[in-house]
Structures are given as C-alpha cells and as structure tokens.
Write a protein that binds this DNA or RNA. Structure first.
Lengths: 341, 341
DNA sequence: CTGAAAGCGCTTACAG
DNA sequence: CTGAAAGCGCTTACAG
C-alpha cells in the first residue's frame, strides 16, 4: 500500500490537483464551498497526509528549525530546549536536534547537515570560542545565510546572525557585589575553558567588580564546563587554599561560573569532609531546575532558561534580513551555600 | 545567490547530472577515477551541498528519526535522548524531536507531523495508557507502518511495533526483596497515574513481592509522574501515616515509583522537618544522573538510560518488517535513603 | 562506464 | 474560481 497522494484526493473529489492543493494547503483563494467540502471529505476518507518533503521542495521553506546544544543531558541545555520546543510548537515548526558532546567537529557537521536539510533557521546554544571563530564553521554559515537561512546564537554574540545574550559580565558583577555586601571578604573562582566566551565573561565580571572594591581573588582554578570539571577543579582549589574541615577560619567564597560546576564542587568537598557553607562557601550561575532540590541550597544568578529558548525561536522566525540582539539580565539570589555564620 | 545544485556541479565537471549523482552519493559503480575526481573537485569548488529534501523525495528514505518524549527537561528523558542522539549520529540519522508536556493530544499531533515528514522511524519514549490505546493514535501508526515506517516504544509494549522494555515489574520486586532483607518491615507506596503502564507495573511488582513475604503496604498514594507530583503525594502520605519529626518510631519505607517523584517527596518531608532516613525512608527507580549529587543518596533501581535510548535506535534502524522486543533488567542499589539505624 | 529521461509529490504562475 | 503545465533538486531504471 502506497501512501495516498494529493492526486488521489483530487481524483476522488473530481477536481484538479491544483484545486485540491489550494483547499488543503493554499491560503488565498479558497474555492467554492461545495468544491472545498468535497476535497476535504476525500482527503479525510483517504487519510491523506501531505508529504512534507515534496512540499518543502516545491515551496521555499521546510518548516524545520535546527537546534544545536553541547549536551542534551545537561539541565542547562535541556531547559533551553524545552523552551525552544514549546515556542516551535506554537509556531508550527519542527525541531531538528543535535547534541554535540562539546565536540566542535560534531558541531560543524551538525550545521552542515542542517543546511543540507534546508532548515529555515539554525539555533546554536552554548557559547563558542571567543575571538577567532572556527573558520570552517563560519564558511558554512556564510553560505547558509546567503541562501536565506537565519542563524541565532544563545550565549555569545557572533560577528553575524541574531543572538540571545545573557548579561553574563554584568550579572556576575552584581553577584560579587551582593556577596561582598553580605559580608564576604575572601574570594576564589572556579572558571571554565578559556576559549568559551561565557566562562570568560562571567569570570571577568566577577573579578572586576571585586577589584572595584579593592578586593582580589585568592585563587583561581578552572576546568571543563561540566559537573566533573567542577569536581576536579574544586579539589585543586581545596589543596591550594589548604581547606580543612571545621578549621574555624572564615570561609572563602568561591564563585563557580556554572551551577553544574558548583554542584560538582560541593560533591568534591563533601567527600573531603568539608561542609558548605561552614568550611567554604560557593555560588553558581544559571539556576538550573536541579537546584530546587539540592542541599545546601545554592546561591546563584537566575537566568530564565526556558524563556531564553523561546526568544531564540522568535528571533529565528523573524522575517527580514536584519540581525537582532536580545539581552537577558540575570537576577542574583542569595541562598544557604553562601550564608555566613 | 541561489544554492548550487547538482546540475551546476555536473556542468562544471563536464559530465551528466547522473554521473555527478553517482560519484557524490551513489554507492555502486563509481565512475573512472579521472571523472570522479573532476566531479569531486567541482563540488568542492562550488561548495555543493545536496538538498536532503530532494534526495528524500527521489529515494525511499529521509534519514529522519522521529523522537517523542513527555518532557525534555526531565532528566529521565533527557538521558534517553542523549543515548538516542549518540546512536543516531553514528548511524547518520537526523533526530526530529518533540516534547509533549505529557499531553496526549500533542503526542498524537507529533506523530502525525513526523509521518508527514516521512521519518524513517518513530521512537516513542514514555509509557502510555495501558489497555485501550488512544484510537486515533493507533490509526496513525497503522497507516505509518503500512507505508514502511517503523515504530519503537520505550517503556511499554504496544500491540505492534518494536519495544525496549525495562523490566519494571520484576525489578520492583527485587527492590522490595532487598529492602525487606535489609530489615524493613513497614512499607508504603507513592505511585503514578493509573493509566500509565510503567507506574502500574512498578507498583504491582513491589506490592506483590511484599505480599509473597506476607507483608502489606500501610498506605498508597499517587500523583503525576513529576517532581511536584511526588511532592504533593508525599504530603498526603505523611498526613496519613501521621509522621512526626524524630518520633523515635521505626521509619516506614516508601517506594516512589520514580526517582523524580522520590526527590519531590524528600523535599516535601524536609519542609515538614522530617529527616530521611531517620523519620522516613524512601527508594526510587531509574537512577537519573541528578541522583549523583543528591542528599541523602537515594536507594533506587538502576536503569541504563542512555543505553536504552541507543537500543531504541538499533531497533528503529533494523530493516525487516518483524517487530523486536528488547528487555532491560534493572539493578537494585541500596543507599542512605533507606538506611536503618 | 556514461547519459537522456522519467519520476518522486507537491506548489504556483499563467491562462481561461 | 479552476485547470494544464512547468518546476523544485535529486535518483534510478533503461539504453547505449
């Protein structure tokens, strides 16, 4: 049994294929009521389903939205994807998903494949190298944009394309201020990869706000943007600061540039017998959903993750060749993990 | 600037379109070296990218894999999706993702859309109503399968299609046994929706294993398959059992049919001043990644979530019209949340 | 080994 | 308002 085609519907309704097409999909010029009804009835009886591939070929657009994330299992990204999904559904777009495992080769391949599939837009979530963008990737995007494709990035402003930009630098500064005003005097940082813009911005925003108050970080360590990256970095940090359980000393306040890293850090310290916030304090960034049930509750900068995903879809759907930029502020929330005695 | 077509490549290489097609995509009968090289060079110089839509129309398959989950932000599903992504990538398939928000209407629409896009296979993750499957959904699938589409479900065996089935009933029984052998004597259950097969199987497996030992649950409550569902159910359970902080009584052991619900339950109890496992014990199911950094550590049944996603892809890619069934055992792991004094 | 031509299932000017 | 026909960009028997 072959799939029923538009032609089958047309034959059954006793009209031409063009007419059937118009009543079933065409917007303007809907044929006379009687005809339209006959066509719709025929389509229903036959169980007609338009072939999206054929429609895409005949029309300009595919209705496909390409979405690329570093790791779909990371709560930061899965929250964003949720927002994208919801917005895409109301816009009647289908989402083509790629999770790159933080591998830039895979990322580039994904872009290439999405272009082959003629996605109407490509959303790139997760920051990239700052400075010189991968040459090959840029070439892909140039080609894509030249052919009418829209690209929007979440997290880093590229030299081209639209962007949804969390105010990482500014919000990190506000976090530093809030912490200092809460009485913290000693700071340290667990940063991310040096070629990831988001990591760098957050670290800089924090450190610069501190220096404005005449404060300096005692130590800085860094690692991959993952739970394990935070875990490993935290061990090095503990060694550097010679942290001891219940030493009685004023706890150092550590800024982990990501909630996920902060959680890894807390796990590492717990294994060493260190208690947060008694022996060491820590703040994160993002406000991933997981935090809700984490102990101790984590001080962080709240980012509206789902809304960010939805906004990316809005920018992606925006007709017009101009590139848009949407800034998203973060909100500092102090919780148990930075509570002073 | 229009996208470069195969014809452009052929012209530049001085060969026919058929030849260009064969060297660039066709498998058998690769033309002579010289010709092939010229075509490849032309394709590279022009930046040719095959139009996947056109290829899909001309060939039989689209290379698309439709994946439907209840909620992409739920760690259970995002872990599975990660496994699907990885397997799909190695199989060179693209993933079309739909997150339904646990709405069966949206689920049906997603299936319908995936069929329109002529996905080669559709993977449905998340259990459905047991018994009478949504009539409309079934009709969609019948049509789809009749046209060569493969469907594979994760979690529930449908009347048709392939399936990756965690051994919910059996593993829950093993969990009950392990708990009883650890010394627990009083039990309760936080179950899921009555029309969700997975929830029912897990509850039954647990309760039946208990009864084999002459034990009965003291109370059973249930709620939606979510963190908040577990939270609300836990409050009702606490009221029913009249749980009090530090009462000194032997803690009741509660089986929440999902880790996500168990985490919500612990949060509810914590707010009531109840301490796990001192005042109440709890075990979950799934072993979502989040558990790794949860306090207290949660007793659960480990399911290889990513592997399950990967297996679903294998079944989806399996050529042949026969339906396959893959059973996945769970492994009980006892942790702090059920530790007796 | 290579090419001319038909066909995949739709949409959309262009006529009537 | 409706239809005949061309075209979207590929693949693939069928000939040569």
């Amino acid at each position: 049994m072959a799939a029923v085609r538009l032609q089958d519907v047309a034959a059954r309704a006793g009209v031409s294929q063009a007419t059937a097409s118009r009543v079933l999909n065409g917007s303007t010029r809907i044929p006379g009521e009687g005809v339209a009804d006959r066509v719709r009835a025929a389509a229903r009886e036959l169980g007609y389903k338009p072939n999206a591939q054929a429609q895409a070929l005949a029309r300009a657009s595919t209705g496909l939205l390409g979405l690329i994330v570093h790791d779909i299992a990371d709560p930061y990204f899965s929250s964003i994807v949720r927002g994208v999904q919801t917005a895409a559904r109301t816009a009647r777009k289908q989402v083509l998903l790629a999770s790159t495992d933080r591998d830039f080769d895979i990322e580039r391949e994904s872009v290439s494949t999405f272009i082959s599939h003629r996605a109407d837009a490509i959303v790139l979530a997760g920051s990239r190298q700052s400075g010189d963008l991968d040459r090959a990737l840029e070439a892909e995007f140039d080609y894509y944009r030249a052919n009418g494709g829209r690209v929007v990035v979440i997290g880093q402003p590229l030299a081209f394309g639209s962007a949804v930009e969390p105010e990482n630098h500014c919000a990190s500064g506000q976090l530093a201020d809030a912490l200092a005003e809460a009485g913290h005097t000693q700071f340290a940082v667990i940063g991310g990869p040096g070629n990831i813009r988001t990591a760098v911005d957050r670290r800089n925003g924090f450190v610069e706000a501190l220096s404005r108050r005449g404060l300096t970080t005692m130590v800085e360590v860094s690692g991959p943007f993952t739970r394990d990256g935070g875990y490993a970095a935290a061990r090095r940090l503990a060694a550097a600061l010679q942290l001891r359980p219940d030493s009685g000393a004023t706890p150092v306040c550590v800024f982990a540039v990501t909630d996920v890293m902060a959680i890894g850090a807390i796990a590492a310290w717990r294994e060493m017998g260190l208690v947060v916030p008694r022996d060491v304090c820590v703040a994160g960034f993002d406000d991933i959903p997981t935090l809700r049930d984490h102990t101790p509750s984590l001080t962080t900068v709240v980012l509206p993750l789902e809304a960010i995903g939805a906004q990316a879809v809005q920018l992606a759907l925006h007709s017009g060749s101009d590139d848009l930029r949407e800034r998203v502020p973060g909100q500092v929330v102090l919780r148990d993990s930075t509570r002073l005695p």
